[in-house]
């Protein structure tokens, strides 16, 4: 089996390189949007506590929708293809980001915020100079989770006509070509592991730089 998979990689290297790049493009776009929107929402609910249950409840609810049905629900609105896949992946990416940003900010020692406020920092200065740096490691942990999840989840995007390594898996299933399915799956796992390693490295260096636990 391993030999077969290896041969497929060698024979169809152009195909797999192209699929991998497309996979990274789709999941990368979703990760970027998810991270930005998630961070903004997470900051919003930790600054304005009244909005917390609404936004956290909503992102939680969306998270419980099975991915395949979310894709199905989106098709009438955004059609088939990469756009729909990116929207669905972004929506799933929100929860870990929102939750970790919120947890990171709210777990900061209250005396630290109190000192910053008492010394005359504006709310924006407290956010940028104190809260976000101190929440960074928790936010990065959420980001790391989210990236791995998004790269893996992007595998099903091919079911609605989007590209990426899911195409290889889907083709393997429909043509009963086990090696093809394996080849696609292994590459997804590899991409996920590599990015996990990468963000883990960033997380570690930030922790060391700011002496954070």
């Amino acid at each position: 089996m391993a030999q077969k998979v290896w041969n497929i990689y060698l024979d169809r290297s152009d195909f797999f390189i192209q699929l991998s790049l497309e996979h990274l493009r789709i999941s990368g776009t979703a990760i970027l949007f998810g991270a930005m929107i998630g961070l903004i929402l997470g900051v919003l609910i930790s600054e304005y506590r009244k909005t917390t249950p609404v936004i956290l409840g909503m992102t939680n609810l969306i998270y419980t929708i099975p991915s395949i049905s979310l894709l199905g629900i989106l098709i009438p609105f955004t059609g088939i293809g990469n756009t729909t896949a990116i929207i669905a992946l972004t929506v799933y990416a929100l929860l870990p980001m929102v939750r970790n940003t919120y947890a990171g900010i709210t777990s900061i020692e209250p005396s630290v915020i109190e000192a910053a406020r008492g010394m005359g920092s504006t709310p924006l200065e407290i956010l940028v100079k104190i809260k976000l740096p101190l929440a960074t490691t928790v936010i990065l942990a959420g980001l790391r989770n989210m990236i791995v999840m998004t790269i893996a989840l992007a595998g099903i995007a091919s079911f609605i006509g989007a590209g990426g390594l899911g195409v290889a898996i889907y083709r393997g299933i429909t043509t009963n070509n086990m090696a093809m399915t394996m080849a696609g799956s292994l590459l997804i796992a590899l991409l996920a592991l590599l990015s996990d390693f990468l963000v883990g490295g960033i997380e570690k260096s930030v922790k060391r730089k700011w002496r954070l636990k």
């Binding site: 020692e109 005396s111 109190e114 008492g118 005359g120 100079k129």
Partner: peptide, 21 residues
């Protein structure tokens, strides 16, 4: 302006509240 006022008033609390980063 409370922000300006606070910058001109030293503030020390029991927990100190140093910025750990």
């Amino acid at each position: 302006d409370l922000i300006r006022l606070r910058r001109n008033i030293g503030y020390v609390i029991q927990e100190v509240g140093l910025f750990p980063h």
